[in-house]
């Protein structure tokens, strides 16, 4: 892989995406072993710097690093100098000066990961920046789809819910369309960003159109504060109009699979029977998340000698 940082899927080539997905397979084998450790990244240090609470993504990255024998250290915004007013750039420089090889950054503001790349020399992995991108989530979604469908090209993928605020939707849109899927997004008009059609997405304000004949359905988490912000009238109505339930899922193909980036609000964006049903790959996504993150850490830190800095 010829990239130094993983900021998003917008600027990744099909080759690089494929390389990550191909590498995730062997990585997944390691997770399923008794002895879940390989010495590959011995002596490397991975710092997770999280400005948003996110137990699962952080744990997933830390385990990925540990399975590869890297040392990990975590910085949580609430308990750090961040509350004392340290800027993001100073935090990045400090973490880099302590010898971290990789910074995994979760931040509520778009572009935060890219900002870090301009001021430090370490590898930056974007673990979600505002409404911008969450590349490893999309990669693990694609890996999960590939495991079951063996291809992404030609699939119809429906992404349902709060597209406007979703970095997962954006990263998936880039990645899936690059690999040849037909992506349909659906959500309330107040939660649809402007201009997605120009990126090759099919945009609907009713979920049925997106679900019709879909091979893959990705239900997005609805932040409960969207009602308070006045973006939807009520959670109850949202569930009725946009929630993924068995009846709606029946519009998709018989072999359609269901994904959700988690954490789920059962009974809001997805009903419990669908979330826990036979077509749900939600549990598998979590395992695959570790594998994909192992692949990313491996590909970013190994083979440094010949990479070009494209980001």
């Amino acid at each position: 892989m010829s990239i130094k940082h993983l900021l998003g899927l917008q600027h990744l080539s099909v080759n690089t995406i494929t390389q990550i997905l191909d590498t995730a397979g062997p990585m997944k084998q390691i997770i399923s072993r008794n002895l879940k450790k390989v010495p590959t990244l011995r002596g490397k240090a991975v710092a997770t710097v999280f400005y948003e609470p996110s137990t699962r993504t952080r744990m997933s990255f830390e385990l990925a690093a540990k399975y590869l024998s890297a040392d990990t250290v975590g910085l949580a915004a609430a308990s750090s100098s961040v509350v004392k007013g340290e800027t993001l750039i100073d935090t990045a420089r400090t973490v880099a000066a302590m010898g971290a090889d990789v910074i995994v950054l979760r931040h509520p503001m778009a572009g935060a990961a890219e900002l870090m790349t301009r001021y430090t020399d370490v590898h930056i992995v974007n673990a979600g920046d505002g409404m911008h991108e969450h590349p490893t989530q999309a990669l693990l979604d694609m890996f999960t789809i590939l495991e079951l469908k063996n291809t992404i090209s030609g699939l119809k993928v429906a992404i349902l819910g709060d597209i406007l605020h979703s970095r997962v939707a954006r990263s998936n849109l880039w990645g899936l369309t690059k690999l040849g899927a037909e992506v349909h997004v659906a959500g309330p008009p107040t939660l649809l960003p402007v201009g997605l059609q120009q990126l090759g997405a099919h945009v609907h304000d009713c979920p049925e159109a997106a679900l019709e004949g879909a091979d893959v359905v990705i239900a997005l988490r609805l932040q409960l504060e969207r009602q308070r912000q006045g973006l939807i009238p009520s959670l109850r109505e949202y569930t009725r109009l946009y929630g993924l339930n068995a009846e709606r899922l029946a519009l998709a193909r018989d072999d359609a699979v269901v994904l959700h980036p988690g954490p789920m609000n059962r009974g809001v964006e997805i009903t419990a029977d669908v979330a826990d049903g036979s077509r749900s790959l939600i549990a598998e996504q979590v395992t695959n998340g570790v594998a994909v993150r192992m692949a990313c850490l491996y590909l970013l830190t190994v083979g440094d000698g010949g990479r070009e800095d494209i980001n």
């Binding site: 778009a110 572009g111 991108e133 954006r170 402007v194 201009g195 997605l196 120009q198």
Partner: peptide, 13 residues
């Protein structure tokens, strides 16, 4: 500005 660029960058328009 609200538009494709803002949507892609994930910045509020």
């Amino acid at each position: 500005n609200e538009g494709l660029t803002a949507s892609v960058l994930g910045l509020k328009g």
